[in-house]
Amino acid sequence: MKNHHLKKKDPNLLLQSAPLLRQELTTPAAMKDVWIALLPATAASLWFFGLSALLIILTSIAGAILTEWVFTDKEKRRFAISDTSAGLTGLLIALTLPPGLPLWMVFLGGCVSIGLGKVVWGGLGSNIFNPALLGRAFLLGTFPIAMTTWGAAGGPGEFFQIHSSNLALPFMQAQVDSMGAATPLGLMKFEQQGTALWSLFTGNTAGSIGETSALFLLLGGIYLLLRRGIDWRIPVAIFSTAALFSLIMFLTDGDKYPSPLFTLFSGGLLLGAFFMATDPVTSPLTPKGCWIFGIGIGFLVVLIRLFGGLPEGMLYAILLMNAATPLIDRYTQPRIFGRQG
């Protein structure tokens, strides 16, 4: 096997970045593909959550870009904003937020994800953790109740119905406008209640604005894979590990644990696997490292979902593996040719 590998001309070998020191990303072009890939999911969020989703997305992007602008040197400002990475972080964090979240919290999340997730580390390419997920983790720790109050998904007919909690004054609590809906994962964990796979697939469930629609996330993910914008090993490793682990659990007790398909299509697993875990800055550089990284996320997410206190585990699964990335990189450096390992 080893010898074959050297003889065979594997096209994938050419696609890996060199196992050298990390370099700062300089290509706004790479960002463009991600923007395009996120379009279907963004459109789906507008379809299901209406004007509320639009307001959240715009506020979050504004917070992210403003923070980037304030903390960047005057000479570098134009370049820093025009590479659109700050705006992209803003969009990504918006997609992970519940539709009824007060806009001032959304803005704060945008500021924190860029400020604490990126700027303090030294800017793009130097951060350890995915900035969007760091921002979401901050919001979840800071406003645990607001961040777990979900509104039910509507349709285009309710496009102009804004959640009144969106418009809470800065630093003030949101007025609870209607009975909150539970997410499929919450229903599963606390009420042992399943959700129809078709609803999960189209996205007509309660949840964060950009995570509900499996179909549109898959569309964007496949586009990115075709464009080779992301390493295919990471999502594949996450999906197969999560499916395998939950299949084992499902077979031991089908009443208590959800099916593998439910695991894959519910919560933020697809959004995280395609758009967060594959962030080139915070994922490993080597192919072997990518497998380890993906398997780790897939394992942790099911572990947290089934045995942890929280219904959803994608956020912490990715952040934990982000923290392990430097270590993975160190132990998966390819052996230098001709030397003993």
Partner: peptide
């Protein structure tokens, strides 16, 4: 300081 409607930042 802010009245009863203040949303506390639990993480702090």
């Amino acid at each position: 300081l802010f009245g009863s409607n203040f949303e506390p930042w639990v993480i702090m």
